[in-house]
């Protein structure tokens, strides 16, 4: 089968994760996402099972970040519906490029404490129990001793550790990570992957956009391969086949700046 046939085949066949018998963390009903009417994610159907650990893989511009933003509720779908299996407060999101102001005079402890927002809100007291959670999270990411360190004086890896500690404190049921291991060394990546495993063991749902296929194959049981259109979704070994990866690349190359309105059946 040529790659062209493979690419056109995915347009016809609905690509969908095997529906699990159990709670659903996120369900996509014919979801189209994009900017200025240009779709970045086109007609996505499927569901993330509760407690699943899923990698989102695809070329640059495939719509990975857009998809994750939509789960986090930061953009609205152009079409279709996204339904969450848990309240919005139980979703934690780590963006790829955070607009964190690293020159702001605030320490690691206070940054991590922001994860308590849904518990303490504008006025609530951070009592002994909450303080314990903050300290535990800082210890879990290996930043003990850095509590008072201003965030501007952290290395890139240390800052990412601190942001993971904030995710720990958020205690979310669904954790959305956008390329969390970019530009990190092997040690830091391994430590943070351990936390992802820990979340998986605690039956939290985790979805992460990643580029390193080796990490995906070793760590993530489920994979969604996306190239604007969903290409394949399911067990990682069955998704990351050479044919699927090739068709994903070809689909991104075929983008059309003068596209007409899409009339595919809803």
């Amino acid at each position: 089968m040529s790659a062209d046939q493979a690419a056109s085949a995915v347009v016809v066949l609905p690509v969908q994760a095997a529906p699990a018998d159990g709670p659903v963390a996120v369900r996509f009903d014919n979801v189209t996402l994009g900017y200025d009417r240009h779709p970045a994610v086109h007609h996505l159907d499927g569901a993330l099972a509760g407690g699943s650990l899923t990698a989102v893989v695809g070329p640059n511009g495939a719509g990975k970040s857009t998809l994750l933003k939509s789960i986090a509720g930061l953009i609205k779908p152009l079409g279709g519906r996204i339904r969450l299996g848990q309240p919005r407060e139980r979703v934690a999101y780590l963006p790829q490029l955070s607009d964190l102001d690293r020159s702001f005079p605030i320490g690691v402890y206070d940054l991590v404490a922001m994860g308590l927002w849904h518990r303490v809100g504008v006025f609530g007291r951070i009592g002994r129990r909450e303080a314990g959670r903050i300290e535990d999270a800082i210890a879990a990411v290996g930043l003990t001793g850095f509590e008072r360190r201003p965030i501007g004086k952290l290395s890139g890896g240390q800052l990412q550790r601190a942001l993971f500690a904030r995710l720990l404190v958020q205690d979310a049921a669904l954790i959305v990570l956008d390329e969390p291991f970019n530009a990190l060394d092997a040690k830091t990546t391994a430590d943070l992957l351990d936390l992802v495993h820990r979340w998986h063991r605690e039956e939290r749902t985790v979805i992460a956009a990643l580029h390193d296929l080796a990490t995906v194959e070793q760590t993530f049981p489920e994979t969604l391969l996306i190239a604007r259109e969903p290409v394949a979704w399911g067990r990682t070994a069955s998704v990351l086949t050479p044919e699927n990866l090739l068709s994903a690349r070809r689909m991104i190359e075929a983008s059309d700046p003068h596209a007409r309105a899409c009339d595919r059946a809803a």
């Binding site: 934690a92 963006p95 955070s98 607009d99 964190l100 702001f104 940054l111 922001m114 927002w117 849904h118």
Partner: peptide, 11 residues
Amino acid sequence: CVDPGFLRSVS
């Protein structure tokens, strides 16, 4: 001030 994106994601 510190992390407007985070505030947007939680509130």
